[in-house]
Amino acid sequence: MHGFRCLKIVAVLVMALPSSYLNADMLARYQLQRVDISSPTAVSAAAADQREWLVWKYGNRVQLQQQGAAYSVVWIRMKNGSLERKEVYPSFKTVVSYEPGDAAALGLADSWEGSAALFDGAILKSLEKKSSNQLGGYEGMLYEGTLHGRRYRVLWQPAKKLPAVIHIRSARSEERISLIESFDSAKDGGYIQPDTGDTYDDLDYADIGDNETHPLVQALHRTGRHSPYYPNH
C-alpha cells in the first residue's frame, strides 16, 4: 500500500518555514511508526515508515506539520460547527481547501474532535475501556477493540485531550503513534509554527483537476504524490 514499504525518513525536522506568529495554545510532538506486515519479507528494517508530527492547537484551529512534508494541514472550526480543512504549501504560496463534500469523497471524514484530538472520538467511544491505565510507558485511560478489521489500542490522556499512544494493527500493517512531548504553551516548545497560509492563493481541491497549468498541480502530477509530498524525493 502506498509504497511506504520502501519509505524511510530521516527524522530531521525542517523548521525554516516562516511563521505567522499566531498564538498557539499548545503544542504536541508525535512519532508515527508504521510497519508493513503483509508478508514475512516485508517486515524488515526497510519496511518501517517512521515520521514525526508537530501539532499546534489554538482557538478554533489545529495545524499539523509532518517532518519533511512540503505542506501542513490546518483544520478550522467555523461558527456553525462545520470544519474546514486546508493544506498549506509555503513554497507555492498556495492553500488547497477541501469543501465538506470533497473531504467526504476522499475519505477524509474529518471532525473537529478527531482533528483536535488526532483521533476520531466516535471510534474511541466504540472501544472498550480497560482497567489498565498504562501503554508504552505512558499513563492514561486505555481503550481497546476491533473495528473495520483493525485492532485498536489507545491510551487517552483526558487532561491534555490527546492520545498518548495509538496502536492500530490490520492484516497488512501496524501503526504506532506515540506522544514524544507536549507543551501547554506552544512557545515553550521552541518550534516555529509553519505559515497558516492566510495570505496565500486559494485552490479548491475540486479545482485541481482543472488547473493543470498551476505550478503546484504540475508538481503534484510530477511527483505522483499528493500527500504526503516530499520535494526532495
Partner: peptide, 19 residues
C-alpha cells in the same frame, strides 16, 4: 485507496497517490 471509517495516519494526513 482505502475507504472512510478507517482511522489511520493517512486518514489524518491525506491520501497519497497510489502508484
Amino acid at each position: 485507496y482505502e475507504l472512510p471509517g478507517q482511522n489511520t495516519a493517512d486518514a489524518i494526513y491525506g491520501q497519497p497517490v497510489n502508484p
